[in-house]
Design a protein around this nucleic acid. Sequence first.
DNA 1: CCGAAATGCTTTAAGCTTCAAGCATGTCAA
DNA 2: TTGACATGCTTGAAGCTTAAAGCATTTCGG
Lengths: 149, 149
Amino acid sequence: MKSELRLWLRLLTCTNMIEAELRRRLREKFNTTLPRFDLLAALDRAPEGLSLGEISGRMMVSNGNITGLAARLEAEGLVARRTEPHDRRVVRLTLTEAGAAAFAEQSAAHAGWVAEIFSALPPHEREALHRLLGRTKSALTEALEGEEA
Amino acid sequence: MKSELRLWLRLLTCTNMIEAELRRRLREKFNTTLPRFDLLAALDRAPEGLSLGEISGRMMVSNGNITGLAARLEAEGLVARRTEPHDRRVVRLTLTEAGAAAFAEQSAAHAGWVAEIFSALPPHEREALHRLLGRTKSALTEALEGEEA
DNA sequence: CCGAAATGCTTTAAGCTTCAAGCATGTCAA
DNA sequence: TTGACATGCTTGAAGCTTAAAGCATTTCGG
């Protein structure tokens, strides 16, 4: 098997292991999911709120995806939807107080989990990995962007 | 923000970029999906076929997931299901000729895509990344296994 | 102004995924 | 032998995800 394939499978395995653990804990401790958490995180970084389109761009998922996710979070009282007065096509989402409080709690736990998960890797290897992934990301952007024409 | 969190987000971004590209190409070139491809790959490595339980273990997904996936692949004529005579609870899946042929084609293309995607990263960095991810995987296994008790 | 194009969101159909409950079959101990 | 437990798979409810079609609104050229 090609070495690139082995590299890819290893990258995928590591990511999946961590992601599965984070999903499991979000579910277990907060009865929530990663997409919900990610959406709250996006809103938390934007005090003025975000349009659905801005959110789908930041989360790199489709448009229609956010419609449903936002509907569920609204039903849970964590976000508020309101139509932009100046452009009535736009729906702006903001965190409610309850949403901000829930995210604060979840976010702190999440950061702790990630730190815990990586704690078994020595600091200098964490740094080396971070650096290499930075290079990889640049290389990917380059490799995957030129072809779209 | 904690350095572990930045490392995790970078790891996630790299993996997601590659995975999205592979999904896109599988869809575009072969009108198939990553789970289908992964299931065929598992069967391709097992000439005698595999039980649904063995497959869900190898793919690290739930049991019920495979039931549906296998049903769709069977409907497409790529895999054959048959009940084990010695234990009639067990369903054994094998590749059909059409399935083996389809997978051979897809697999070759997939390996090429992965090589292409990583081609923008210099070989010595690919090797370093592979090595570090190996260490990471071991560390993760250690960090995520002790706690289950 | 008015029609055409663009933009933002929603809906729909299909598939992937999980968990929990349920069914069929097999195993084992009393 | 038979009842209890274990094992393997399926089903059902819910949520996530996409692509494509559709609707409402805005923008812009004429």
